[in-house]
Nucleic acid binder design. Structure first.
Lengths: 237, 237
DNA sequence: ACCCAAATTTGATCTGAGTCAATTGGCTTT
DNA sequence: AAAGCCAATTGACTCAGATCAAATTTGGGT
């Protein structure tokens, strides 16, 4: 989107003080392996709106999200967009079998990733089955989420979609940062619409409706979940 | 759905004469491994409409489809159904991390599978990174397909959905059985509707419309693709 | 604090796909 | 070959969400 202004940190950075050390692919490595692994990854920053990689690009790197939020999306030739997911710290991106990315990814706000060159990373995996096993687990978990999202896109009403999204997003943030009913929404209404298979107007109207009914309060940069139980009821159908 | 009438073949069956030996998970095994692998799997048949496993069931087995077609689906509490995919020979089913299936699967027409008990299969994988790598590849390929399907469900019109489905289904059959513009559709209109996020009426009307425009001919048990180029144009948007 | 541009909300209207309701067509059973 | 049954088609009408069109709010830069 914008010209890519990538900053590579000049000074040392170590897995041992990495925020996502326990969560990401790294969790399958022991201390010695982690030290070796350290040399493979580079910490890279992206500014808000910058594209990390694009669909159909040849895959040269894998990415471990460290900080921030990314939108993952596919475009139709005529410009229609479907967001296939939002990536948060701990998520691992770039796996594919065609040698090309099958979706685009860009930063929502400032993002930091741990970037691994494909070749060295592939070689590192080669004789470490537990790492492969871990990556496999991540893929299978994503597959399960993808299927849940298919149900949402194919069979849920606008109200159900929005309620489901809000609760699911809250749960991810809770898992990451601890419990709170204040739910930051760093992505735009358009992003939410493209994630839920709706228009921006429908998302906006549904937010307003939920607020009128006392389920949420729309606040600066997010929402406050006033009545989680009622939101659950709306989401479940 | 129906009472489960599972027939376990009494006599020997060997990987060496298995129809999907080269295609499925097995393709990563050498001759010696294949002989060992043989004892892990049992060939099991299912009648039309029988359920192979249900969502939320504890996973006790993995399955390699040998013959026939299966519908893979999720249900909402109120009965709405989303078909998340159709399984064909060579597809491998049952992977998950929760220990429970995350979708249901039943036979469309007669189906034969190679069934593996979870424990022994897991142990067999343990010291065979190739096999794990193969399974990982299958998961990543499915993930890519799942994302394509999200785009279809969230952002395509009814016409585009049906055209995309017909072409995609044809391509899978071509890969399996060779080129032909006769496309058998063993699944019902309801199945197609639940796969595409439409109603049965809309699917039916769209078929009729495609036929009126000379793109397809509706024949017994399937369609004949008269004008693939035009179908591609409709699918692409 | 002020200005501009972009994002969001709100309103009015339209329409693609859903719903409801018959028919039609194919099989199976007798 | 008539009856019964289920899947598929067709038609008439409705409606949830899209589209079109303004406001209104927000945010960033100076």
């Amino acid at each position: 989107m914008k010209p890519s202004v990538v900053t590579i940190e000049p000074n040392g950075h170590y897995c041992s003080d990495c925020a996502v050390r326990g969560a990401a692919v790294c969790s399958s490595l022991d201390a010695a392996e982690l030290r070796e692994f350290e040399h493979l990854g580079r910490r890279v920053h992206f500014e808000s709106g910058e594209t990390v990689f694009s669909e159909e690009d040849i895959t040269t790197s894998f990415y471990n999200v460290l900080e921030g939020v990314m939108r993952l999306y596919k475009l139709l030739p005529d410009g229609r967009r479907q967001i296939v997911g939002f990536a948060l710290p701990g998520d691992f991106l770039g796996m594919n079998i065609s040698g090309r990315h099958n979706f685009s990814a860009d930063a929502i706000g400032v993002v930091a990733v741990c970037q691994f060159a494909k070749g060295p990373f592939g070689r590192f995996i080669e004789d470490r089955p537990q790492l492969l096993k871990r990556i496999n687990e991540l893929a299978i978990r994503e597959l399960s989420q993808a299927r849940d999202h298919m149900v949402l896109l194919g069979r849920r009403s606008a109200d159900e979609k929005v309620a489901t999204f809000l609760l699911g997003w809250r749960d991810r943030l809770v898992a990451l940062k601890g419990l709170s009913d204040i739910v930051p929404l760093p992505m735009s209404r358009q992003d939410i619409a493209d994630y839920l298979g709706l228009t921006i107007e429908t998302v906006s109207r549904t937010f307003t409706k939920l607020e009128r009914h006392g389920v949420i309060e729309i606040i600066h940069g997010g929402i406050s979940l006033l009545d989680p139980a009622r939101a659950e009821a709306m989401a479940a159908a």
